[in-house]
């Protein structure tokens, strides 16, 4: 409808106001990233040495979030856990981004057989309970964190492909694409330079959704003992292990849990915001 007149998306000048929730979310994500990069330089409390004299103590001056079932400092482990919390989800989100940008755009632009095959594949993948499948595969091949990341990366692409393909399909009939075609610009260039750039907000919103989903999924696998090695400071693992001292120091389990929720919510909020901003820029729903 109004799509025919769609302007290129990034009209930033007219929408400078950023909601408070987005600012807060960005600050939190930044804090996690800083924790992952600079954490080891600033926090010298050991994350692995057990201390049988202070097992499951409540938060105190010496231990900000108290200690866990082996007497290790929960805060230090929480900061150390930022690395695995970010790495796996980043890899999964990047692979989703790349695959959907390549395959999704091509399927939407070309249509026909390529599109049909892609969509059948996507429908099939959608019918699978991904996390359940990941649980089984990681168990059967007896893999750890990296196998989990690999499996989830594969089981995650279908949603991305579907969304990006839909967006590319919408763009295909717009005037600028027709103009580009008439001017003799190559199909490759139309797809990956023009269309991909115009649907970039969707790709980014998708990236955010993937990241949050992967964070939760990986934490879930670790929670079942199917991810990071026992003993590593990993949020999902801390959650399981901390359960044993839930009575003495609830923060041992709740702190990593809250960290997972906050990171997932922050990333999702930013993703939703990017998506809606793009939708209103086009004038669609």
């Amino acid at each position: 409808m109004i799509g025919g007149l769609a302007l290129p998306v990034g009209r930033r000048t007219s929408r400078l106001r950023v909601p408070v929730t987005i600012v807060v979310s960005s600050v939190f994500i930044l804090a996690v990233v800083v924790g992952a990069i600079a954490g080891p330089t600033f926090i010298h409390t050991s994350t692995s040495a057990p201390n049988p004299l202070s097992v499951g103590t409540m938060p105190s001056h010496a231990h900000l979030f108290g200690t866990d079932e082996l007497g290790r400092d929960v805060f230090a482990r929480l900061v150390a856990g930022t690395t695995t919390a970010l790495t796996g989800p980043l890899i999964i989100a990047i692979s989703g981004f790349a695959v959907s940008a390549l395959v999704g755009v091509a399927a939407g632009y070309f249509g026909g057989a390529l599109d049909a095959v892609t969509m059948r594949f996507v429908d099939f993948m959608f019918a699978l309970p991904a996390l359940l499948l990941a649980i089984v595969i990681v168990t059967v091949v007896q893999g750890g964190y990296w196998i989990a990341v690999l499996v989830l990366a594969v089981l995650n692409v279908q949603g991305d492909i579907r969304l990006v393909r839909g967006a590319a399909l919408e763009q295909r009939n717009l005037v600028y694409v027709e103009a580009a075609r008439v001017t003799g610009i190559s199909r490759f260039s139309i797809m990956y330079r023009h269309i991909a750039r115009n649907i970039l907000p969707i790709l980014l919103a998708d990236f955010a959704t993937d990241f949050a989903g992967a964070l939760v999924a990986l934490a879930g696998l670790a929670f079942l003992g199917l991810g990071a090695e026992p003993g590593t400071p990993d949020w999902g693992l801390m959650l399981t292990e901390g359960q044993t001292v839930l009575f003495e120091n609830p923060f041992a389990a709740l702190a990593p849990g809250i960290a997972i929720v906050l990171l997932a919510v922050s990333v999702n909020l930013i993703g939703d915001w990017l998506y809606e901003r793009r939708a209103s820029a086009i004038g669609g729903r």
């Binding site: 939760v216 934490a219 839930l246 009575f247 609830p250 919510v265």
Partner: peptide, 22 residues
């Protein structure tokens, strides 16, 4: 919508165990 669909169920479960059980 955003909060509940982002919060993993195992975190929610542990939080409820702590609140209502302990």
């Amino acid at each position: 919508g955003v909060f509940l669909s982002s919060a993993p169920n195992f975190v929610m479960a542990i939080a409820l165990v702590y609140l209502f059980g302990i």
